[in-house]
């Protein structure tokens, strides 16, 4: 080959061809999507996230969750993700329009998280310990109380932003199940617990003892992990905290790293903290001590619980659609958005 010009042009041309073909054209095709809404302009999906969710996503990125967890439900022709109950429809580009960075993932050493928030126990499903007043949870305007002021340290400016913007995935936004959150005494274990399990639930938990709210039958049981006796309801905020702190207390065979550095072990001064973890056996702190989540841990859990693609999306077929899913325990995504969670 003689002369630099043809070589240079060829090198540039092949590069430009690939760049235009694989990034510019797709950007032109799906790079400017808007949220969808119904005819009345309500029920907007998705909605931008802010505050604790945003920070939670940064914690997710910083700690490499993406190297083991994907956030996408693949189409049924390509994989068995839907049959595995990781979602009731495939993920669509519109689900991610506000995500930055987007955590589609490349690896599944852990399960898919696209709908992990949808798997949280619905409010009605947790028994409410009688007589527990939870005033702190009352201001939770959002059904997902990650934005609940009670959840965030008082000095956090970010938490103040979130109540205004309804979290996109606040599942029961259009369902009656969202309303109880506005009532004065939401039952513990419901979504108010995103960032901090509501005080009542925790206050009743004796250190190292079994939790009063561990009814195994209520949570929609995914095949895995299995609801462990003595632990908070699966996929509830309290459960996420225990899982992040000590994955092997929930599933003995799990190879998930523990994220203990996101938690603080401290001496109980006065009353036991409302958001202390319900740890069992060897993980339990010594008497007089408690383990509490840091603000980053609360944000991470708030973010995880906001992951929810159960809202129907135009042009994507959902199995079962918006109809209430069968109350069978084999339907982990049962409390789909827009559908009242089955009251069992």
């Amino acid at each position: 080959m003689k002369g630099l010009a043809p070589l240079f042009l060829g090198i540039f041309g092949t590069f430009a061809f690939s760049w235009i073909g694989l990034t510019v054209i797709p950007n032109w095709q799906i790079g400017h999507l808007n949220p969808q809404s119904d005819e009345e302009g309500t029920d907007i999906y998705p909605q931008p996230q802010s505050g604790m969710f945003e920070r939670g996503a940064r914690v997710y990125a910083a700690n490499g969750c993406i190297y083991c967890h994907s956030q996408q439900v693949r189409a049924d022709y390509a994989a068995d993700d839907i049959e595995r109950k990781w979602g009731d429809r495939r993920s669509a580009p519109r689900d991610y329009i506000f995500d930055r960075p987007v955590f589609l993932g490349k690896m599944r050493m852990g399960q898919d998280l696209a709908n992990i928030g949808a798997r949280a126990p619905a409010p009605e499903e947790s028994p409410s310990p009688a007589g527990v007043a939870s005033p702190a949870a009352a201001p939770a305007k959002q059904a997902t109380a990650a934005g609940s002021p009670s959840a965030a340290p008082a000095n956090s400016p970010s938490s103040a932003r979130s109540p205004g913007t309804a979290p996109a995935t606040s599942a029961p936004q259009s369902s009656p199940s969202g309303s109880p959150a506005a009532s004065t005494s939401p039952p513990p274990g419901q979504r108010t617990g995103v960032a901090s399990p509501s005080p009542g639930q925790m206050a009743n938990a004796t250190p190292g003892g079994s939790s009063p709210v561990a009814p195994t039958a209520q949570t929609p049981a995914a095949p895995w992990p299995i609801q462990t006796e003595g632990l908070p309801p699966m996929y509830s905020a309290a459960w996420h905290h225990v899982h992040l702190y000590s994955p092997r207390s929930i599933n003995l065979d799990s190879n998930m790293p523990s994220y203990r550095f996101l938690y603080q072990k401290r001496r109980i001064t006065g009353e036991r903290s409302s958001d202390a973890l319900q740890l069992s056996a060897s993980d339990a702190p010594p008497a007089g001590w408690e383990v509490v989540p840091s603000y980053d841990a609360k944000c991470l859990v708030a973010y995880l619980m906001s992951l929810n693609q159960s809202h129907p999306v135009k042009d994507v077929r959902s199995i079962g659609g918006a109809a209430a899913p069968s109350p069978s325990p084999a339907a982990p995504v049962a409390p789909a958005a827009g559908s009242p969670a089955p009251a069992k």
Partner: peptide, 14 residues
């Protein structure tokens, strides 16, 4: 000039 949503993943793969 970040691209929207899933395209970030496409750019990453590319």
């Amino acid at each position: 000039v970040p691209v929207q949503g899933v395209l970030q993943a496409a750019v990453g793969w590319w």
